[in-house]
Design a protein around this nucleic acid. Structure first.
Lengths: 141, 141
DNA sequence: TGCCGCACGTCAAGATCCTGACACAGATGG
DNA sequence: CCATCTGTGTCAGGATCTTGACGTGCGGCA
């Protein structure tokens, strides 16, 4: 029976890296008054305006309920606006939100650049490709 | 100013993979009655018997308080035992805990094998190396 | 047309984790 | 020898996320 070794396990390395990245992102976003889920929400909202609550939740990897109250806070801060015609509310960034996401995205890009500072461009693409292959392999139930 | 693109960002790919791995691990460990933090705790406890609460917390990437009540549940289930001489309690696996971690570790190893099924051995080592380089690059404040 | 499945939004409750705080043991340095 | 500091265990309190459930609208299909 195969076992798991903490030192050689790719899964543990993945968790370590993900945790370090999240910690660095939190520190980077704190001056802007944003948490990581809030930033993720704004980022996706910037890329896909008019998205619904449920689709947004899937993009940030949280439940619809969590996204719901997350959006409540962002609307309170006047960073996102809700404009829906039917039953489903469609959200988009306010001008204030658009200004903030530019700075936040740059801050996160700097963190990501620091994380990848030891890798060349070809190695970065290789890492990205490997990660997506792993995600795809886990997706097949 | 550089921005973040959801499709090409290594950070997002990292988050997607880590989330997929955690979800698969939860499904794999549920039949054994273990959550992911509980499994992580047992795994580290198996590798380093007699470890303290604080060291354990650092290994699982949670706070000491969270680890404290996590250990409470594991002691309730008689999977770990506490034997301390001084002020610091030293924890280790019970025979029951040792039996369970063997099965749990095998289940998690199977999930990890599925995740890496599309990569050859050399590619796996390469991925592991790249991830550790990223972690190291983020560690330098 | 009418029915049924499905996804969405939303409310309530519970669990998990974190922040803040306090007391205490052991190491360090005057 | 004593003061100080760091690390640890522990106790609330609060914030965040999840699970579970309910009502509603929308689209496929007989």
């Amino acid at each position: 029976m195969r076992q798991v070794d903490v030192d050689t396990s790719v899964g543990y390395a993945l968790k370590r890296t993900a945790t370090a990245l999240r910690t660095a992102m939190e520190a980077s976003l704190r001056p802007l008054g944003l948490s990581v889920p809030q930033y993720s929400c704004l980022e996706i909202l910037n890329a896909r305006p008019g998205i619904s609550n449920a689709d947004l939740a899937r993009g940030v990897f949280v439940t619809r309920q969590a996204m719901h109250q997350l959006l409540g806070g962002l609307q309170e801060a006047e960073l996102v606006g809700a404009g829906g015609e039917g039953r489903v509310q469609r959200y988009s960034l306010t001008p204030k939100g658009r200004r903030l996401i530019v700075a936040a995205s740059a801050a996160v890009a700097a963190v990501e650049e620091q994380m990848l500072s030891g890798l060349r461009a070809s190695e970065r693409e290789r890492l990205h490709s490997d990660l997506e292959r792993c995600t795809a392999a886990l997706g097949e139930d």
